[in-house]
Structure formats: C-alpha cells, structure tokens
Design a protein around this nucleic acid. Structure first.
Lengths: 190, 190
DNA sequence: TGAAACATACCGTCTGGACGGTTTTTTTCA
DNA sequence: TGAAAAAAACCGTCCAGACGGTATGTTTCA
C-alpha cells in the first residue's frame, strides 16, 4: 500500500534519469545503440513519456551533452584550490578531476560519454573546444606553459584510456603516472 | 573499345573500395550513419555483392578495425629507430607518428578521425587495448616508466585535440609541446 | 479545472540480411 | 591441351523487425 503524501510525478528527476540511461547505453554498447525505445525502457517510462521531455532524439543527445559539460565544468571549478598560486593551477585541477574518475561508479560514466560524443560529432567537438579556450583565457597567467599543456594532454589521454580499460587505467600504474605529473608541475615554469 | 586481356572482376580491389567507402561514410556522417545500403551504393555495387565479401555488418566493421590497427601499427613500427637505445623507444615512436599526422592531408585525416570515431565501439576499444598491451610487453624493458606512459598519454591527448582543432593543435604551440616531451624522455628513467 | 505529465496505439521509412538467380574465374582431369 | 566441373563473384528482390516520430488518450497535480 502506498502513502497518500508521496507524489507520483517527479519530472525533474525523470529528465535526469533519462539522460543517465542514455549515457549508460552509449557507454556500454556504443553510440549506434542509442535508441529512443531503449532509453525509455531502461528508464522505466514509455516512449511517449520520453518524447514529452525531449521532443526528438537530437534534443535528447543535446541535453546529454550539456549536462555532461556542465557537470565536468563544475567539478573542475570545485577542484581549483583558491589559495593555490603555483603555475598550472587550472590544468592541475583539470587533471585531478579526470584522474579521480571511477568508472565503476555509474554517475561518473557521464565523462566517458563526453569523450565518445566528442570523437563522433564535429559539432560537439567545436563546442568543447570553445569551452576549453574560454577556460584557458581565464587562466592564461598560469596555464599556458608547455608543462601545463602536457598535463592536460596527458589527462585527456588518461581519459581516453579509461574507455577501453587499457593498461594505464590500472590503479597502481595510474598512481605512478599522477605522481610523476605532479612533480612535473611543481618543477619549473616556461 | 576494351581489350580482351583485362579481367572484369577484381575482388581484392572491391574489398578495399568497400572498406574505403565505409570509412568515408563514418568520417563524414558518424558511426550511426554506416549502413550496408549506403556502403554498397557508394562503392557502386549491389548489397548482395557487399554481403558476399563481408557476410554481415559486424564483419564489415571488423574489417575496418583490422585496417586501421594495421595501418597505425605499421606506422609506429616504421618509426622505431633500430639503433635507438634510449628508454621510451617505443613510446617516442608512438608519439612521433601521432605528432606527424597532417590533418590537411585527406587520407591521413580520414584514418586518424576514423580511429577516434571507432572508439565509441567497445569491441574496437578492446582490440586497440590488446594491441597496445602486446606492444608494451614487447618493449617492457624500455617503455614501462611513468615518463614513457606520459608521453603516450599526451600523444593520445594531442590526437584528440587535433580532432577539434583546439588550441594545442596550433603549429607553434604544438612544436613547443613536442620539444618539451622530447626533453622529458631523455632526462631520466624511473 | 486546466495544464503538465505520462501512456497507448499506430505509421512510414529504413535496415540488416536471407535467398535464388546469373556471370566470371579457377580447378580438374582425360 | 581444352572441355567440363566447381567455385567464386556479383545481382535484384523480398521481408521481418527496428526505428524515429505523431496523434490521441488518461492520469496527476497545482
């Protein structure tokens, strides 16, 4: 028996769940496996219900992209130590967020989706680039050195590597890499 | 008028053309746009003809996998200096191949983009990973250090960055990064 | 009560691929 | 050698199901 007070509808939560299920499908079975029927089934809702919130497949994908970018941006911003004055301040936070991804946690699979979307659609790619460039302008005093750039590039590589569960995503190896990158950042400035 | 001697069929060439057209479709319109009808049409052959050579869509995609892995593997192998004795021998070659990809050369760009796009397929990821791991076993004496790993990770990042034409793909910046990575490799060993 | 939130039913198109042919090339063997 | 036999290459048609999307309900809630 159900209590009277609990509301049956929770559209905001459903929208989130829809995006998460879409992400899950993409990560587990590749982009072509993303279907409206599949997402609806996974989210325990009818296709009509899905289409009520995202009026087309493109709208769904677009929503997914925005959510993931927003999420990542927030994470990075939160990871920037306000008292930090060393060079590569932003890049270090960028690396830290990516390094801390635990692919066994469902919500963090969102990041994997981001990379998949980037590598498949030039439109999203351009959007991502513009985000990065904006961040770079904001932190141009600290994050334009080759060291900083390499940190971010390695972070991207690590990110990509997490997708396939390659050798660099093993915990101990990963830790070694991160330590090395850390010493790199503190060492010098170009 | 046609000479008698020329053969009408050329199955090997057709198989190549089929893979080529498939690659083109993926690069231009994304992985979900890869259809048997589309490939057959583009290659100027019937769908039956296509299915004769690749008995299913999976088989066709599998053919693409092998093609790109072979290509990249060959490039790296060719880039390894046989007289080289320094550490990170393999990783340096790996980086060099990626760094030398000229996105303004269509054939190179197609292969490079294709590989990234295929990354959205878990099967491809597994295959790619197994290749990397095999290479790593072969070069375990020289390429297991954090420095070597970071070189490869940064190479992957650079690759991804090339896709979107981000700030790190600008020639001068790129050169700076590569120089920095080079000094990294010669510096020390873990 | 009416607007938002969802469900159900349905449609037109596309897609993978099965199938039975025909033509071309290679192999067999007398 | 060369004709017969086998195999490979390729074509055109057809179909069951999946897919994105619409149209029309029914329920929920402010």
């Amino acid at each position: 028996m159900m209590t009277r007070l609990q509301r049956k509808n929770n559209p905001a939560a459903l929208r989130l769940r829809l995006l998460d299920c879409a992400a899950q499908l993409i990560v587990e079975h590749g982009l072509p496996a993303l279907t409206l029927d599949g997402v609806a089934r996974e989210a325990g809702v009818s296709k009509g219900g899905l289409l009520h919130h995202y009026s087309s497949k493109d709208a769904l994908i677009g929503g997914l992209f925005e959510m993931v970018v927003d999420w990542f941006g927030g994470q990075v911003e939160a990871a920037i130590d306000p008292d930090e004055t060393r060079p590569a301040r932003f890049s270090r936070a960028y690396l830290q967020v990516i390094a801390q991804i635990d692919m066994s946690v469902p919500s963090e699979k969102r990041l994997a989706v981001l990379i998949l979307m980037l590598s498949s659609d030039p439109h999203f790619c351009a959007r991502w680039t513009s985000w990065v460039e904006a961040q770079l302008r904001e932190h141009q005093a600290t994050d334009q050195s080759p060291v900083a750039r390499c940190m971010r590039l390695a972070a991207d590589g690590l990110w990509l590597s997490d997708l396939g569960g390659g050798p660099d995503s093993v915990a101990t190896v990963r830790h070694e890499i991160l330590q090395f990158l850390e010493t790199l950042g503190t060492g010098r400035q170009s």
